[in-house]
Nucleic acid binder design. Structure first.
Length: 477
DNA sequence: GCATGATCATGC
DNA sequence: GCATGATCATGC
């Protein structure tokens, strides 16, 4: 490890000086800032950050445990924003320091490497332009960031969860979806060198770094940089938590209405809707939210999913995800796939209802969940690769019997975790197949598929019996 | 009851 | 009319 004396950033001792210098960078392109021609030679990820460190704040690139400005206790981060129809959002998660499993297990939050290095962040945002050279990216905003108390409560929960897994000898099972705001994301290639030792297991664990998850960064940007209005909060005041974690607070609230029928809950909260999302609407009302969005769940990217358990204890319906376009899917690889990343990064809030013996649907409670690492990287990956193969110069076959169009896409019976099924307004909601993929159909004459290069829009599903296996015992019996 | 194809209800 | 979240319908 380099010594502190290797730092040359002694010019900026206070938060004010650091922020002032950052503000002067706003409006400049990376190439204008770059004194050493790094942006045109490096071309590597992180190159933009290096340019700012060297050429703008004038210190050597380092991998110290100390924050970049030790005297002010500030860490510098340069990160990308992208513009979409709702304004600017974070392009990526903000990757922080690598987690040394061997050491972090023995720290507390206050003595952790995360807190020591990332207590305060000097954020410089450039606008990412697809297809443009990084040298042409422009710094458009700055923010000296201190975590607000309510966010910090969740970040502490997250940290405890991450370190709890290390202490349980399960660092190899860490996943970004384990947590809400602060994540443990993989860092480095899949090479053997990116695996590390952990203190309470002989299993080597993937190298991971702390990160502020993408949705949380987007929330920070929208709220603190652009001053956009935020959704209603579940926790109006940190004291409301009463020492509980945010997740416990939420599941306790839902559990308080355990056994109430949907009809009772509708009248209790004066809900008129019969929408298919009624189960979720009720959950938001129980959590004290007037609309259908809660700030904490949005900024954590939590997906709220309703589950109905039958009175015999099984689940009828599998869980659907947004439809995909065949051409988009063909262009992806598993590691950067939309579905894989969704499951990798997302924490879910299951709202569980169950039919009683009189066929009355009653609330059972809530459960936070994310997919276990092995289920994702073995079973889901296998299913995804098969679907990917079909749209990458594969052969799709349709068999039409009695006006029903059967296909050869990954079926529920093939895989214990996930499958592919249609998802659209009807079967004529189609989207085009990539060139090279063939589509054949045979028919008994009841119906003829009218396209050679289009197929009913599909989505990925998590199997109903798999979801059941993931529920807490209290919901299974 | 399960597997799979097909479609609904709402909000924008 | 579509995106989203969810549920229906049918044959075996």
């Amino acid at each position: 490890m380099k010594k502190l004396t290797d730092h040359k950033n002694i010019e900026y001792k206070t938060q004010e000086e650091i922020l002032l210098r950052g503000a002067e960078a706003v409006g400049k392109t990376i190439r204008q800032i770059d004194k050493y021609g790094r942006v045109d030679t490096d071309g590597v990820k992180g190159g933009i950050g290096h340019v700012i460190e060297e050429s703008w704040y004038g210190y050597q690139i380092n991998s110290d445990a100390e924050p970049d400005f030790p005297e002010a206790g500030v860490e510098l981060k340069v990160t990308g924003l992208v513009k979409d129809k709702t304004g600017y959002r974070a392009k990526e998660r903000l990757v922080l320091n690598i987690i040394n499993y061997m050491e972090e297990a023995y720290t507390t939050f206050d003595t952790s490497s995360f807190w020591h290095k990332n207590k305060r962040l000097m954020l410089l945002f450039y606008e990412y332009m697809p297809g443009s050279h990084p040298g042409d990216f422009k710094i458009i905003e700055k923010l000296l960031y201190k975590y607000p108390a309510d966010d910090l409560a969740i970040i502490k929960d997250d940290w405890e969860k991450i370190v709890g897994k290390i202490r349980a000898g399960k660092a190899h099972e860490l996943s970004e979806g384990d947590t809400l705001y602060l994540g443990a994301c993989t860092k480095g290639a899949t090479a053997a060198s990116s695996f590390r030792k952990q203190p309470f297991s002989d299993i080597l664990a993937k190298q991971r770094a702390y990160c502020l998850k993408n949705k949380y960064m987007t929330y920070v940007v929208k709220k603190y940089v652009f001053g956009e209005a935020q959704d209603e909060k579940i926790i109006k005041n940190v004291a409301d938590l009463g020492g509980r974690s945010f997740e416990s607070f939420v599941t306790d609230k839902l559990a308080a209405y355990k056994g109430k029928s949907v009809e009772e809950l509708k009248s209790l909260f004066q809900i008129n809707s019969n929408a298919k999302s009624l189960g979720a609407i009720i959950a938001y009302k129980i959590l004290g939210i007037k609309g259908n969005k809660a700030a904490e769940l949005e900024s954590a990217g939590v997906m709220v999913k309703t589950i109905r358990v039958r009175c015999n204890g099984t689940i009828k319906e599998s869980m659907s995800f947004p439809p995909f376009k065949f051409r988009d899917l063909a262009a992806e690889s598993w590691e950067d796939s939309t579905f894989g990343n969704t499951l990798r990064e997302t924490r879910f809030l299951f709202v569980i209802y169950r039919y009683d013996h009189n066929n009355v649907l009653r609330l059972m409670g809530g459960q936070f969940w994310n997919i276990p690492y092995d289920d994702l990287e073995t079973h889901v990956k296998y299913m995804w690769e098969r679907m990917h193969g079909l749209v990458s110069c594969g052969q799709i076959k349709l068999t039409i019997k009695q006006n029903v169009v059967y296909n050869n896409l990954p079926a529920k019976t093939e895989n214990p975790v996930a499958h592919v099924r249609p998802h659209g307004t009807n079967r004529m909601t189609v989207n085009p197949l990539p060139d090279g993929t063939t589509l054949e159909s045979t028919s008994d004459g009841s119906f003829f598929w009218p396209y050679k290069d289009k197929l009913t829009t599909q989505c990925f599903w998590l199997n109903s019996d798999y979801i059941l296996s993931q529920l807490d015992n209290q919901f299974k019996q």
